[in-house]
Amino acid sequence: MPTILGQNQYGKAENRVVKITRDGDTHHIKDLNVSVALSGDMEEVHYSGSNANVLPTDTTKNTVFAFAKEHGIESAEQFGIHLARHFVTSQEPIKRARIRVEEYTWERIETSDNNSRFIGSDEVKHSFVRKGQEVRTSQITFDGENWEVISGMKDLTVMNSTNSEFWGYVKDKYTTLQEAYDRILATTVQAAWRFNWTSDEQRMPNWERSYAEAKKHLLQAFAETYSLSLQQTLYQMGSRVINSRSEIDEVRLSLPNKHHFLVDLEPFGLKNDNEVYFAADRPYGLIEGTVLRDGVEARIPVDHTNL
């Protein structure tokens, strides 16, 4: 049976690069995990094994590290833009580059008053602890003319200990879940948002500020929504970002419901007045959805968690 080659790409995945910027005695850290995927005129390498159009994946790895030195790392998005532009414009067979970046953030270690003798010393200015809140993600795609930038986060765990209910749902003979009028609502946020910036570099968003603001609005919407369902919370979170950030047109959220079930304490003669819960890790409900600016088509992949 005759066959033809379909969509294909290649590159170097998960290049871990740590860039230290030394501002005198004060150091700054950018810690990234960068994956490069290139596509274009690559038919012959698949059909005949000819590598004439192939830029080695080892070269893409070296480029990541060289660019960290040559261009620095202002933000995950800006670094990805530098890389994507380079691969598409420097290699004629390469027509499209996709750069995916995870950023692991660090914060300075603060000394206590009892250790005030260290304040201002070199130890404090270059001592850090890894932040555990979330991993920042970004995907930058360039085809030689237009850009697509999708940023986001994963592994941001949040909880409301009240102001959440779940009742009035469909029941059949297999339903055992009891209606809840005051429950814990917890989830681990995985989010991706697409910028409407595509080409004009004079109007490029401030990536760092945009990320901080998008995260703020996600958290505020989660905290401030009196939730009758996790779906309702998801919509409010996405809407808050779009309504607050003009540079963002699409938000996709994946929210696993981190179930907390009231423990039956009656066998011990104790009343459980919404105080003691069993935190179940699996199975879990998974609520996913996309919120769009009116008139905009969805373009973020449904399986965005790998961005």
Rank of each mutant, 00 (worst) to 15 (best):
V291R: 02
V302H: 12
T305R: 09
M153K: 09
D31I: 03
E77Q: 12
R130Q: 15
P56N: 03
V36A: 01
L307I: 07
K271Y: 01
A180G: 09
A13N: 11
G120H: 02
L228C: 12
S75Y: 07
N146M: 05
Y284S: 15
W207R: 03
P2K: 13
V18S: 00
S127A: 14
A180I: 07
G132E: 14
S127G: 12
H217P: 00
S210M: 08
K19W: 05
I248H: 10
L307E: 00
P267Y: 02
S254F: 02
G269A: 06
N196G: 07
I29C: 07
G144E: 12
E92F: 01
A280H: 11
F65R: 08
N257W: 05
G80I: 04
Q231M: 13
S229Q: 09
A37H: 13
R96P: 00
K215C: 09
N257T: 05
G168A: 12
L265A: 08
E134A: 10
E179V: 03
E92V: 10
N62H: 06
F118D: 03
V291C: 05
V170W: 02
L156K: 02
L228W: 10
S50H: 03
A191V: 13
T198E: 12
T26Q: 10
W167E: 07
K69Y: 08
L234W: 11
A13G: 07
Q231D: 14
Q202E: 13
G285C: 03
S116E: 11
M1L: 06
D249Y: 02
T162N: 10
G168M: 00
F195S: 15
D155L: 02
Q9W: 08
S121F: 00
V18N: 01
T111E: 04
G120V: 05
W167Y: 14
H304R: 05
W207Q: 08
A279Q: 07
K95D: 07
T157Q: 11
I300L: 07
N274E: 00
H82N: 15
W167K: 13
E14Y: 09
A68M: 05
W193G: 03
K154Y: 04
P56T: 15
S229G: 13
S210D: 03
D41G: 01
T105M: 06
F67C: 11
L38N: 04
A191Y: 05
Y235H: 15
E266V: 05
S116M: 06
S90E: 15
K154C: 04
T105S: 09
R293G: 02
